[in-house]
Structures are given as C-alpha cells and as structure tokens.
Design a protein around this nucleic acid. Sequence first.
RNA 1: GGCCCGUUCGUCUAGGGGUUAGGACGCGUCCCUUUCACGGACGAAACACGGGUUCGAUUCCCGUACGGGCUACCA
Length: 504
Amino acid sequence: MEKKVRVRFAPSPTGGLHMGGVRTALFNYLFAKKHNGDFILRIEDTDQTRFVEGAEDYIINALKWCGIEPNEGVGFGDGPHKPYRQSERKELGIYKKYTDRLIESGHAYYAFDTSEELDEMRKRLEAAKVTAPQYNAITRQNMRNSLTLPEDEVKKLLESNAPYVVRLKVPRNEDIRFNDIIRGWVTVNSSQVDDKVLLKSDGMPTYHLAHIVDDIEMQISHAVRGEEWLPSAPAHILIYRYLGLENEMPKLAHLPLILNPDGNGKISKREARFPVFPLSWKDPREAEPFVGYKESGYYSAAFINILALLGWNPGDNKEIMSLEEMCSLFEFERVSKSGAKFDPEKAKWFNQQYLRHKTDEELANEFKPTLIAKGITKDDNFILNFCKLVKEKVQFTHEFWEQGKYVFEAPITYDEKVIAKKWNDSSKDLFAKLADVFKGINDWNSTTLHDEFAKAQTSIGKLDMQLLRVLVTGVGGGPQLFDMLALIGKENTISRLESALAKL
RNA sequence: GGCCCGUUCGUCUAGGGGUUAGGACGCGUCCCUUUCACGGACGAAACACGGGUUCGAUUCCCGUACGGGCUACCA
C-alpha cells in the first residue's frame, strides 16, 4: 500500500520568503491537496548565526496571504510530530541519537580540525592542482579525526570537551543512483561527494542530517525542493542507507529554478526591477524594505497563478486557474525540467485577468479607500460607475486613480501633442458654441450627449472629439467620451470647457 | 576548473519518429469606433549545432556549444 502523502515546506528563517520559495511551497501544497495528503511547515533554524528576526512570522504570513496554509507546523497548529522547529527538536536530542547510530555503525566519525586547518588543507590541494578540494576518503587520512587519531586520544579529546564535528564517511568510489520524480535517474559517483558535516561543533545538526531525521520522523512521503539541492541528494541517499532507512525515505522531486527575466541566474532581490517577495519585507539589517506583490497591487490568487505556471502547466492551454483547479490538475509529470525566466509583463497581465473577473461592486470597494485617503467624497453609485468605465484600462486597482483622476479633478495641463496637432484658429469659436449647446441640455446623459454632439456637428461645424476630450480631461485617452462627460456632470463639463478655452 | 542538471518563437510553454510545430504574454497590421479603449481578425516570430540510429528525427542515442545549479561547521 502506498504511503499517505505527507509533504513539507522547510524554509530557514534567514530572511523574507521570496517568490521562488513560495513556488516551492505552492507545489508542495498542490501535490498534497491533489492526494488528500498533509502539508507541513517545518522551520529549519539550525544556523543560529543566520537567524533573522521576523523571518519566521514573515514566512507564516506570506503563506497565509497566498492561501496555501499548512495543516500542521509552526504557526499553523501543532500536529503529532511537534515540535516543528529544528532548534527545538535539537533540544530533545533527536539528531544526536541518529549521529550516534551512524558513528556506531562506522558510517560517521568525529573530526577535530579547526577552520584554520581546513583552510590549509584546501590551499594545499589547490596548490597541488586538485580539481575539487574536499574533505573526503583521501584527504581525511591527513586530518585530525577519529579515523586517523589513536583511539585513546579521541577519547581524551571528547572527554576534554574539545570542539568537534561529526562527518559522514563517504566511500571513495561508488556509484550512487536515485530516481527523481521530475528528472528520472541521476547517477553520481561518491568521489564527487565530500564527507558532509552532520553535526556542527555547536551541537546543531546541519541541514543534511536534520532534514533526513525529520522527514523520517514526520513520515514525509515526498521531498519536494529546489534544484539547488540536486548535487547534495547523493549524500542524502547515503545517510538514509547507512541509517537502514533507504526503503522508508521520501521520494525526491527537484523543481526547476525561477530565473531572472533578462540576464541570468536565480532571481536576486537586489537587482530585480519587479517585486520578488509576496509581502513587503523589511530586513532588520537593512535600511530599505523590499516592496511585495501584495503592496504592488497584485491579487494573491493572481500571484499564485503566475507562480504555478512557472515550471508547470495543466497540459491544455488553460492559464487562468483557481487554487482549487490547480490542486485537482497538478502532477509532477507535468513539471518541466528546465529553469523558467520570470516575465514581469505577463505577471501584470495575469493580475489584469483577475481584475476583470471582479464585479464593479468589488472594484468600487477596492478603490474607495484611495478616494477617502485623498479627501474626495463621492457617493457609492458614482464610484461604481467610475469603476465600470475605467476598469478596462487598468491592470491594478491602484491604477484607477492614475487612469481616471480627471473625473474627480479638473485638469491643470492639456495634452500638448493633441493640442499641437488639432487646435487651430477656429477651434476656440467652435468649442465655445459647443459649450452653449451643452448648456441647453437638460437630460445630461451619455446618449443625449452623443446625439446633441452629432447635431452640433452639422449646425456648428466639424468638432474634434479628442480635442473635446483634452479640453475637459486634459489627456488624450480614456474611456468612452460621452460616458465620461455624463459622469463628470453638466456643470463641471461646461466650466472645464470654458476655463480651457480661456487658457488656450 | 570539477561535478550534476537542462536546451521548442524575445518570454512562459504544448507536442512528439511522418504536424501548415499549437497556445499565452509582448510586438505589428487591419476591422469595430466621429474620441479612447475593450473586443475581433490577421501577421512576424522557435525545435542550439554536429554526428549517428531510421525509409524518415525537432522528437531516440552520442558529442559540442550554450545556460543554470552545486562546489561551507549556509540552507
């Protein structure tokens, strides 16, 4: 019988969770939901030197905003495998137990080398033109460890509390094969794997050991993580094997990376000209915060949708999908192997799609706070009509203002290009006459305006519509003109027209 | 440098031994429109290269090139 699907997202609290991390969490979530499994949040805080205040809360809040909430783990309620913070698990002696097992079976050993000694070794190897300097089956013979030191000296060192690490004893030359769900069979020779540190001198486990112990104890069925972990996977296989747990180890799935749009490499928060964090992130060590997707006006559903299609697709041409749809459609077989360059333009388009699916009421409610903040009071119906008119021009709610502020405020400047092109000697006279026509309109609505304008064309002469638009709104583009004028109102329209004519 | 992974329009991707190589973003043209959009139609645009295997390869295999990842007592 197949194991129950249990997956985990296991970030380290070393900073804000960026979009690559969110996507990893998302794929875990989708896979879990697809198979009625569990999705767990585990905090991998084994590096005390890199701990960043606020990072853990950020991770939790980001997952909440995205709507991909773990059903077990830090910030989401304890489950049967608590605690879910590795620093706390360490206090319970969980990891020590496993390293002891490894040492007893001869698959791990104590190493007493100082960082200076390690540096020296690397320099020595580099000088000798060794292509990959590493602590391994060969070099360990010249280092200070329980394999080279006499037994009683090791004992003495241990008893005297001399600092030590525990390293994995990786065989010199042995092919390690594993089947990745996304990539298929991968083979690496153990000569390429170094004797990984399992237990650090501060007593903390490294990622390599800790995630294995926890995945086993938490009964994780699939380890889904970024491609950057692929090179260390062979070492992980070895650890499972030496623990006698190879048959119980989770299946591995290494996700392709999200790459920079231009240039190359992983997305870097500093160089990106688009948001890289779901929520704004203020690193306590830095002066400036990074603006998030949320604060940039993205809907979380759109954000998640964008991320899902970076490296995965449902196989038909469907692009706009709810989280629920994605859950039912998701499978690793349809995850691509190659990295995906992020396209900020398409991301905006996604948000626009979601915006268009909103009702006018919803949009009006989203836009209202902007008006309130500007001290503008308009009744709900007016705002609703405004949104109805302007929505086809915007990709984000905050663009309503930029795109349509002239509905609320009279223009100060007039589009110079349009004026230069279309304003001529007779314009002033023509539009003054049009203003008179407008004054005579009692039923001020779009249809009437359209009809009266058409009539005016024959009685007054050729009137340029775009010019009229510029005179009233200041800009050359915008929603349907007569709808706009109807919204702006008779008095405002006429007074704006007249003040424009006075200025030009 | 070494090791690992990858490579279909500019980008995200579908496809897969015989296809006019499909869709989406972006771009362009046209239609609608007395303005501006939306919308619609159309268009330009890709199988990295070289060898095999095969009747036939973009698809399978091998090289090369290119890209990415890793190369810590970081995850």
